[in-house]
Design a binder for these strands. Structure first.
Length: 570
DNA sequence: GCCGTTTTCGGCCCGACTGTTTTCAGTCG
């Protein structure tokens, strides 16, 4: 699937154009990239079926961009892009990944100091070459160094949401081989950790050579690190590595247990085995030389006196103790979700009409969908004011009349202004089915003030949900300063729901905070924050995060059937 | 470069914030 590759190039083209001060075009490329990135269907497939005309039907793709997609599909490159790169040979993606660095600064730094990549940038900042430049200064230089330090901290790890589609594709292809008997991802992918170092896949087969031959020639592989009968390792185009291991059938369960980890979890399972006079390894659970468990994973746990533990819980955060005591949570699952309460529609610049979103939601088996567009303060997101909210209400009401066994709810993602007030008048809030409020500005506020700000919003009787409560962006910025215990107390007192945002770089609340919320008796909602209908599928990531936070069905309000949910909001 | 309930050309990408300035440019959401 070439969608991600092409999207990445378009983002870079946008940056190059922005660097040159071109107007509007960068926006067009970004928009096309965003659509491509979240497109369910392979553009190669679309092109094969309907040619260039079909490409032009993709939202944000016109004649010129369709030609570039075609060129890439045919030749594997885009001349226009290469020309831009040649003109200014900088590692744009690398440089703009630094918080506070954009294309314009990159251009100046290239022209004045010849900075082409992150390494050059760090060197220049450390030797104080940047501060004296016109338009730069001490603080900018310091911020650049801090930005680089943050990047390094998360370096080498990939967002689960970014690599999961590719991993699934590899799994499907391997599964389709008749030589493959059993197959499963292991490691942090199986534990659905928010970031992944590399991908492990385990299989059993009678013909390892054939499977390995097939594996190392899969599309999207740029390098084969090693290829052997029991382990092969490759590097994918996106930069992450995939290891494929062939294990013996009788050891499949123990290998799966071993390679799923986490390391900390396994230390404890091995210790329990030792205490029982047993030995646990990737090859099996042994009593002396006799193997007593190993062909299936649950058998290992059973022999250790434990119920099977869901991979999402295996972090040695009390799951083993809970297992021994028979107190493991009954984790929330995909089938429990009845709807999504945070979707953006065309009304605020999202790419789909409410009708299109509804169609997708019905396809996903939902009973309801909540449209929660941005409100007035966020002008860039075409935030809705009171008047447009009222207009939208009319559209939703008339759509609802036509729908059977499905309902659209009107919410809004309002903004918590720096003083804690909401950017929409109370009278208008009262007319919505529910209200989400989130911080979208002044994120560097001091801790006490930020905490008070959010609590004030929760105290507004119309506010039901706080979106992405800590504001962190994975690999980019930390959460804002906030006293989470105080937030939890206020949420409990005011009956405010905290959101688990499913966007791969947000996943906010994180696993730890979900667990704290659950323990504090605070209800949560798993939302996607979809700006494109295909992004409704991100719910998978939010559910995984909720499971990592030990959340059960009863902790999550969008497991409620429609009537119960409406009563709850009322 | 894309798009169309403002519809085939003219509008889109606004406003806060930061860090640099002395009136503003760049970045971010």
């Amino acid at each position: 699937m070439k969608n991600q590759e092409i999207a990445k190039i378009f983002y870079e083209i946008a940056d190059f154009l922005e660097m040159e001060g071109v107007q509007f075009k960068p926006y067009a490329y970004q928009k096309a990239a965003l659509t491509l990135e979240t497109l369910e269907k392979d553009v190669g497939e679309i092109y094969k079926e309907g040619g260039k005309e079909a490409l032009e039907k993709i939202s944000g793709v016109g004649k010129s961009i369709a030609e570039k997609i075609e060129e890439y599909l045919k030749t594997g490159k885009i001349k226009y892009y290469q020309g831009l790169k040649k003109k200014t040979p900088v590692q744009m993606e690398e440089l703009t990944a630094v918080e506070g660095m954009g294309p314009r600064k990159a251009k100046i730094l290239y022209q004045k100091l010849g900075i082409r990549n992150l390494k050059d940038l760090e060197k220049a900042a450390k030797t104080h070459k940047i501060a004296p430049l016109f338009g730069f200064g001490e603080k900018t230089e310091k911020n650049i160094l801090e930005g680089i330090a943050f990047l390094k901290k998360s370096k080498g790890r990939f967002l689960l949401g970014d690599i999961l589609p590719q991993v699934k594709e590899i799994l499907e292809k391997l599964k389709a081989l008749k030589e493959v008997e059993q197959i499963s991802p292991a490691g942090s992918v199986r534990r659905m950790k928010e970031t992944i170092g590399d991908v492990d896949i385990l299989i059993t087969t009678k013909d390892a050579k054939k499977v390995m031959d097939f594996f190392v020639q899969l599309p999207g592989i740029t390098k084969v690190w090693m290829k052997g009968p029991t382990k092969s390792s490759v590097r994918m185009e996106q930069g992450f590595d995939v290891d494929l291991r062939v294990v013996k059938k009788k050891s499949y369960g123990s290998a799966l247990q071993y390679f799923t980890g986490s390391k900390e979890h396994n230390i404890v399972t091995r210790r329990i085995a030792m205490e029982k006079g047993l030995k646990l390894s990737e090859y099996g659970l042994f009593k002396g030389k006799k193997m007593i468990a190993g062909w299936y994973e649950a058998g290992i746990y059973k022999a250790l006196g434990l119920p099977w533990i869901a991979p999402e819980l295996r972090e040695n955060q009390g799951e083993i103790e809970a297992g021994l005591a028979g107190k493991l949570p009954k984790l929330i699952g995909h089938q429990d979700i009845k709807g999504d309460l945070h979707c953006h529609s065309k009304w605020d610049g999202g790419s789909n009409t409410i009708e299109e979103i509804v169609e997708m939601a019905e396809k996903m088996g939902y009973q309801y969908i909540g449209i929660a567009d941005h409100t007035r303060f966020l002008r860039i997101e075409h935030g809705l004011d009171e008047k447009r909210l009222a207009q939208q209400r009319k559209e939703i009401d008339s759509l609802n009349e036509k729908l059977k066994n499905f309902q659209i709810l009107q919410g809004a993602e309002t903004n918590i202004l720096p003083d804690g007030s909401i950017d929409i008048k109370d009278e208008a809030l009262a007319k919505l089915d529910y209200v989400i409020a989130g911080v979208h500005s002044s994120m560097k506020m001091e801790k006490t003030k930020m905490t008070e700000r959010i609590i004030k919003a929760m105290e507004n009787p119309h506010v039901d949900i706080i979106s992405h409560p800590t504001g962190r962006i994975l690999k980019r910025r930390d959460e804002y300063q906030v006293d989470f215990d105080k937030i939890l107390r206020a949420a409990k007192e005011t009956g405010t729901i905290l959101e688990i945002n499913s966007f791969s770089e947000r996943l906010d609340l994180n696993d730890q905070n979900i667990r704290r919320a659950k323990e504090a008796g605070v209800k949560m909602v798993i939302n996607t924050d979809a700006h494109y209908k295909d992004q409704l599928r991100f719910i998978e990531l939010g559910i995984a995060q909720a499971r990592r936070g030990w959340a059960e069905k009863k902790d999550i309000i969008n497991t409620y059937p429609l009537e119960k949910l409406l009563t709850f909001f009322r």
